[in-house]
């Protein structure tokens, strides 16, 4: 509180940037010689943005360069990914993206880039668990009752989500697949309004990231049925997992990873991976992620290989589910 304002503060004003200019043929060994732009495909203040800003600081420290977070919103994150795919592969423009990277090919048939071909993966960042939650006076008390209730009242039950391509919509698709029913989906413009209507009892249930739901679950404003990870989570230790309850189809997490354009030299990717690894061991990052109900990715996943495998596996998983459901991003 009594700290003076360092000059670096003013430098932080520089949130907006174009592709780092020039330097296309710079020496990879000398990297980084300039500020690095970290492109976030979603709004400032959202969960992905928060995760990004958490890791940006320790990464910048490790690399010895400034990292500028730039929010490029639009079309489920494909505008930002398209921008980075076309950027110079010199390591000065890096993309963070979540599960949406793997669902985009299914959602957007005319996608201008290929998630596997046009990028090099840097490493996984975190895998945010999701929770199945309902308005507090909704009849079912657990997943089993929910399944029966949904079967009997398939016409009237409403399932909220945060819009096309949002993690909550994807999780909803898995729930429908698990139960073998077609539910009435009520889309919202983001998680905030959806959660407001869930707390207000206007809609019945939804599935969303712990980042958004943990506080309301703890306060009892909404009730939670299960968490979608294989293991229970620290923030909500009493909550069973979907696997425990036999909902094996509904295992999903909002995984995040870092990407650079495909032509980026391996030497630069290594440096970025190294910095990410250090950042994810930072105590402040671990603590802040715990508050959000998540944990940093384990060290063995913070590698390009593990990341690429995850991306491939997820594209193979989601593309048929999305095509079958008829959902489209345009």
């Amino acid at each position: 509180m009594h700290r003076r304002i360092p000059l670096a503060t003013l430098a932080c004003l520089s949130m907006l940037t174009l592709a780092a200019c020039g330097g296309g043929d710079a020496d990879p060994a000398a990297y980084p010689e300039d500020d690095i732009t970290l492109v976030v495909p979603f709004a400032a203040g959202g969960p992905t943005d928060t995760v990004t800003r958490l890791i940006a600081e320790p990464m910048a420290e490790e690399l010895g360069a400034e990292i500028i977070v730039q929010n490029v919103e639009g079309a489920g994150g494909t505008v930002a990914a398209g921008q980075v795919a076309e950027a110079d592969g010199n390591g000065y423009e890096v993309l963070i993206h979540h599960i949406g990277m793997s669902t985009a090919p299914g959602l957007y048939p005319d996608l201008a880039y290929d998630p596997l071909e046009d990028f090099k993966t840097v490493g996984l960042v975190t895998d945010v668990p999701m929770t199945i939650v309902a308005r507090k006076d909704f009849e079912p008390e657990n997943l089993e009752e929910l399944a029966t209730y949904v079967e009997e009242n398939a016409d009237t039950v409403t399932l909220a989500n945060a819009g096309v391509g949002a993690a909550s919509q994807l999780c909803g698709l898995l729930i429908e697949q698990q139960l073998g029913v077609d539910l009435t989906e009520v889309p919202y413009d983001g998680t905030g309004p959806a959660l407001t209507d869930l707390v207000g009892g206007q809609v019945d249930f939804m599935c969303d990231q712990t980042t958004n739901t943990a506080a309301q679950i703890q306060s009892g404003d909404i009730k939670a049925y299960a968490v979608t990870t294989p293991e229970p989570i620290e923030a909500l230790p009493d909550l069973p997992t979907t696997a425990d309850e036999g909902w094996t189809d509904v295992e999903v997490g909002v995984w995040h990873g870092l990407y650079v354009p495909a032509e980026t030299p391996d030497e630069i990717v290594e440096k970025l991976t190294g910095a990410l690894e250090v950042a994810l061991q930072d105590q402040n990052v671990i603590d802040s992620m715990a508050d959000l109900g998540t944990t940093p990715a384990p060290a063995e996943d913070v590698t390009p290989d593990a990341h690429t495998a995850k991306l491939q596996e997820q594209i193979d998983l989601w593309t048929p589910i999305i095509e079958e459901s008829g959902v489209t991003g345009g």
Binding site: G45, T50, L195, T211, A214, A215, D221
Partner: peptide
């Protein structure tokens, strides 16, 4: 009082809360 952001500026504030290690919610 509810931890629910009413408009974009409030959503930015939620982000700021979280980065400061505070989870905005009904109990805050």
């Amino acid at each position: 009082s509810l931890g629910l952001p009413a408009h974009p500026v409030m959503a930015l504030l939620v982000g700021a809360f979280i980065i400061q290690g505070i989870t905005p919610g009904p109990n805050v």
